[in-house]
Write a protein that binds this DNA or RNA. Structure first.
Length: 274
DNA sequence: GCCCAGGAGTGCA
DNA sequence: TGCACTCATGGG
């Protein structure tokens, strides 16, 4: 096991895990076990230092985005003078944007559409248990996120039984296509190129593409617009547009390279009613 | 029974 | 191009 720690002021486990960007983690004593692809780590904080234990410190250092200075991000977020944003950034300064596995993000956010977070977690958990490799961590067992090959071999009936509902066909179609084509060429694309490509997959529309780009491909100039962000737009920014594409344009033009961070502050802050 | 959830695909004007 | 309709499922 490898272990490192980080200033807890800018790395809060609960805020980082609970804000809706990740669907696979569980409580373990006074900390959390966090899963990514076929790996796991143990995350704890005493309020002064947050510690990460795993068998690959380098992977999780990048996973938790620990190269980046969040004090300046929080500062810039507060500089806009929008009350809900200032409150959320101040309260959620320990929220870190994750750099997650690309394929796990693609399939997870296809499942997320028109769905709620607790149910998304349950569906993904059942898919992992059914198709993922069994691994060991911290004296317990867990299931890796399934490979594309395993997903492509599963069939619609499996996904329906896992609770995917009508999204079963999207998973069958998209996993089959990625098995054939791979996604190696997506990693080097610009944000705009990547989103355009993502939109060509079944089950991926503008909002899901933004989430995949933001959490899976580290495209921080993305601003996913869902029902909660629509609410923020109307109630807290006095917005009058209802077209989600135009709302997205409005926010990206306003927040630019900080869009992804600020979107999470607003999304999480609104859900917590901060 | 209703409305809602990290929306997207389809058909038709 | 825009817009209404539909798509499972579970919780409140």
């Amino acid at each position: 096991m490898e272990k490192f720690d980080y200033d807890a002021k800018y790395f809060n486990p609960l805020q980082t895990l609970d804000c809706g960007q990740i669907f696979r983690f569980e409580r373990k004593g006074d900390g959390f076990i966090v899963f990514s692809a076929d790996r796991a780590c143990l995350l704890k904080s005493d309020g002064v230092k947050t510690t990460v234990e795993s068998d690959d410190a380098g992977y999780f250092y990048r996973f938790f985005d620990l190269d980046r200075d969040y004090s300046s991000i929080v500062e810039r977020a507060e500089s806009f003078g929008v009350p809900i944003l200032s409150r959320s950034a101040e309260n959620c300064r320990g929220l870190r944007l994750l750099n997650q596995n690309e394929e796990e993000m693609i399939y997870s956010f296809i499942i997320s559409q028109n769905n709620n977070i607790p149910r998304i977690k349950g569906i993904i958990s059942r898919i992992c248990a059914g198709l993922g490799e069994k691994r060991e961590f911290c004296g317990g067992e867990f299931y890796a996120f399934p490979t594309t090959a395993a997903l492509a071999a599963a069939g619609a009936e499996f996904f329906k039984n896992a609770g995917c509902g009508y999204r079963d066909a999207y998973l069958v179609e998209t996993s089959g296509r990625i098995l054939k084509e791979g996604i190696d060429d997506l990693g080097s694309m610009t944000s705009a190129q990547l989103k355009k490509r993502l939109l060509t997959y079944k089950g991926i529309g503008p909002k899901v593409a933004d989430c995949i780009a933001l959490f899976g491909f580290s495209k921080r100039d993305s601003f996913p617009v869902d029902t909660w962000i629509e609410k923020v737009y109307k109630e807290d920014f006095g917005g009058t547009l209802s077209d989600r594409k135009k709302i997205n344009d409005y926010f990206v033009n306003l927040f630019k390279e900080d869009s992804g961070y600020i979107q999470q502050y607003l999304f999480y802050g609104k859900r917590l009613n901060l």
